[in-house]
Design a protein around this nucleic acid. Structure first.
Length: 309
DNA sequence: AAGACTGTCAACCGCAGTGAG
DNA sequence: TCTCACTGCGGTTGACAGTCT
């Protein structure tokens, strides 16, 4: 925690000493009273009108992260933990978006929780999975080991398999499945390594989510830029320009599966998709892109069977 | 008991996006 | 079109608390 300190700032041409550091109960009370009676507005004005020697930015942060009446305080529930893990596997470090799906929780809170607790837990779980005797990665079979980013190094939770000329979709999906720390159906956080009955993986690494794929001029290779972190669950979220690809794990053995590929071209919204009865269900009306997928999967085993549901 | 180490979390910083003038 | 203020976001810092040695 920072000690309160004063800083001389030029605020509206007036030399005003702005306080920094921890908020005192008196400051909290001033801000709370002002916000409850006047509501949200320009934070610079709020800071001034509430009689606080704080910058607007500091007031905003204090209100959002601590004073807001609708904040849910206390430890994260197991359900919340699982949701955070799941959402992070989809959204990456987009804490505000994750927080938006957890009522009463702030992005700062979730970020802290992730960095202090969940990241370590996931790393441990992933290491255990890789070191597991049952892991194919330790087997001396002929399956080439996918190249992966380290969990910490990549800043992401799950292994990232990069596109390489000889990447093997079978090995990749198998790897993701075995390395997955989460069950697709479990409702409780688990550190065991169940193999999900349905494996969904996101072909795009999280760091590319802000750079939606350019779908102009034909579909892009869905693994372009790397096979990304897995979406371990029975639903997911597609942002604009993202393709989704789902493979039913139980069919990996003979490389025949119920597959779908779609992309979301709506810049204003995310698409939820889910799996049910081996079919992909898409809400909000994403645009299917089977031709592109099939075309772009041509370098891969042709025994994969894609069907429109 | 005390110092070292580690975890937690509030708050700051810098950057990017946006809108008004 | 440009500038500037404001807002929101993610990364980082640093103080305190708890645990370990």
């Amino acid at each position: 925690m920072r000690k309160p300190e004063d800083k001389v700032c030029n605020n509206n041409n007036n030399k005003v000493k702005l306080r920094k550091g921890l908020w005192s109960p008196e400051e909290d009370e001033k801000l709370m009273k002002y916000m409850l009676s006047n509501g949200q507005g320009c934070w610079t004005d709020i800071a001034r009108n509430a009689g606080l020697q704080r910058c607007g930015k500091s007031c905003r942060l204090r209100w959002i992260n601590y004073l807001r009446p609708d904040l849910r305080r206390g430890a994260f529930s197991p359900q919340e933990e699982e949701l955070i893990i799941h959402l992070h596997s989809i959204l990456g470090n987009r804490w505000s978006q994750i927080a938006a799906r957890l009522p009463g929780r702030t992005d700062n809170e979730i970020k802290n929780f992730w960095n202090s607790t969940l990241k370590k837990r996931m790393k441990t779980a992933a290491a255990a999975a890789v070191n597991s005797p049952s892991s194919s990665l330790n087997n001396n079979d002929s399956t080439p080991e996918p190249i992966r980013d380290d969990v910490a190094g990549g800043g992401t939770m799950f292994p990232v398999l990069h596109e390489h000329a000889n990447i093997d979709i079978m090995a990749a999906t198998s790897f993701l499945c075995r390395a997955s720390p989460l069950s697709s159906s479990s409702t409780s956080t688990s550190t065991s390594m169940p193999c999900p009955s349905v494996l969904t993986f996101d072909p795009f690494p999280h760091h590319q989510l802000n750079n939606p794929y350019d779908m102009s001029g034909g579909a892009k290779f869905p693994f372009q830029g790397g096979i990304g972190e897995g979406l371990y669950g029975d639903y997911g979220i597609l942002e604009q320009g993202e393709l989704g690809l789902c493979i039913e794990d139980s069919m990996i053995g003979n490389m025949r599966s119920n597959e779908s590929c779609f992309n979301n071209t709506d810049e204003n919204q995310s698409d939820m998709f889910g799996l049910e009865n081996n079919a992909i269900h898409l809400w909000n009306g994403g645009e299917w892109d089977f031709e592109g997928l099939i075309q772009n999967l041509s370098p891969f085993p042709n025994s994969i069977d894609f069907r429109v549901q």
